[in-house]
Amino acid sequence: MVAAGMGTRPLEAAVWAALHDVHDPEIPTISVVDLGVVRTVEAGEGSIRVELLPTFIGCPAIDVMRHSVEDRLRDFASSVSVEISFAEPWTTERITADGRAALRAAGFAPPQQSVTNPDRQLSVLPSLPVGECPYCGSRNTTLENAFGPTLCRAIYHCADCRQPFEQFKEV
């Protein structure tokens, strides 16, 4: 496996660079690379194989991303396969520093780090992560709805600057 943007071979490096042009259709401000959705890139003689990790299983954007990745890479090889992988769960920790900055600039609060243990979720129901207002930086915020316009977004309200904002859910 080659880490994001770190292709050691020229073709792989070029593919990673090209994938920065492919954006999340639901949050067009962030690329699939910065979102951490690209797991691996394998580039061989005339063929490229890319593995994508879905953010949420029911998210329809993954099909769009799959096609966009195929389209973007068509000129790099005669055979391009884009596959979905669950070999590791996509987590919000996969969003890069650039991706977090892009989210904030577009008015989305980046996800906060989780301290909950999924094994204990039943007896000790975890509280939701604090939302940090992308406009004024305040943490004096309240969760309005854990479910927002897409599966990956929650809605908060900032008590200081009195703006509603969306936060990328921590998973």
Binding site: A87, Q121, L125, L128, A146, V171
Partner: peptide, 21 residues
């Protein structure tokens, strides 16, 4: 394949549980 999907599903179901509880 089952264990992998379960790991992903559980991360999502956490939000359902919180909301419903």
């Amino acid at each position: 394949p089952l264990a992998e999907v379960v790991a992903k599903v559980r991360r999502e179901e956490r939000y359902h549980l919180m909301h419903l509880d």
